[in-house]
Design a protein around this nucleic acid. Structure first.
Lengths: 142, 142
DNA sequence: CTCCAATTGAAAATGATTGTCAATTTAAGC
DNA sequence: GCTTAAATTGACAATCATTTTCAATTGGAG
């Protein structure tokens, strides 16, 4: 799988080593679908691999972020969450305050308007974060 | 001043009391301009009022958020920041990754597109957060 | 295979935030 | 103004997520 090779390449270029634990954590992360906190991933991995420590999961997630396979995000709560990212296409989030569901979306029109705002203020945008909080269709408007 | 009365009213409706400390903290907060962390406000207040404790500043900021005078925000770092808010008009942020400057802006067009996105996904938006990270005019494009 | 550097896992350290509690202060009722 | 119950304060401890430490282990280049 290409993702796994991308991670190994990243480790090589940084003078780091491939380990059994890092492979396991990478697998679990890729299978998980995204938006997991360190703790959630740790608990999940522990079921199959009780020997792997919290610190190792934490450190590996930071490596994944460095390699471009993961991106760290902070939503309302205090936990850092990591999501898979394909590398180029950016997306934003709809977050249901009732059930905690996280939906992703992209909107080129909004991005264009962001550029316009930045221009008006002499800014050069490097990245952005857009999160819409509310209630999803399932949970109803109130 | 109307703001100060708004806070006193809020305390009354909640069965809470006006105190010397809360007045001092409110004054300092209103004068500060906004985007302060608890620690920054605490350090500033301590210069004039060494007796006021960190916990009291922290608790009062939460009250201010409850009263609608302040809003808590999380930018990249782990600290909670509080900013003044007039109550109704929402604004978003341009954040310079070089010098840390925080600019505010409003853009009705973007808000309208956000509503469109929400509609498309069956969401009912209650609030949102939009932050544009980049380099400000002073710091230059790179 | 050897060896050095990187890695691991357990535990401790950190940093922001929140809780505890005895002493104090507020404000409502007299 | 005085009394009193309840809220508040401030110092300190507890908590929670995250990060570091360190001795033991492991990876992989030579």
């Amino acid at each position: 799988m290409e993702r796994k090779q991308q991670f190994r390449d990243y480790l090589l270029t940084q003078g780091l080593k491939s380990t059994r634990q890092r492979e396991i954590i990478l697998d679990a992360f890729l299978q998980s679908g995204g938006h997991l906190s360190t703790e959630e991933l740790y608990l999940q991995i522990r079921q199959q691999h009780p020997g792997i420590g919290y610190a190792t999961v934490h450190r590996t997630l930071k490596l994944l972020a460095g390699s471009g396979l993961a991106e760290s995000r902070h939503f309302g709560d205090r936990q850092t969450r990591y999501e898979q990212c394909s590398g180029e296409d950016h997306h934003d989030h709809l977050i249901c305050t009732a059930c905690g569901a996280i939906l992703e979306f992209e909107d080129g029109d909004i991005e264009r308007l962001q550029q316009r705002v930045a221009r008006q203020h002499g800014f050069h945008i490097l990245s952005h974060r857009l999160e819409l909080y509310g209630r999803c269709a399932k949970c109803g408007p109130e």
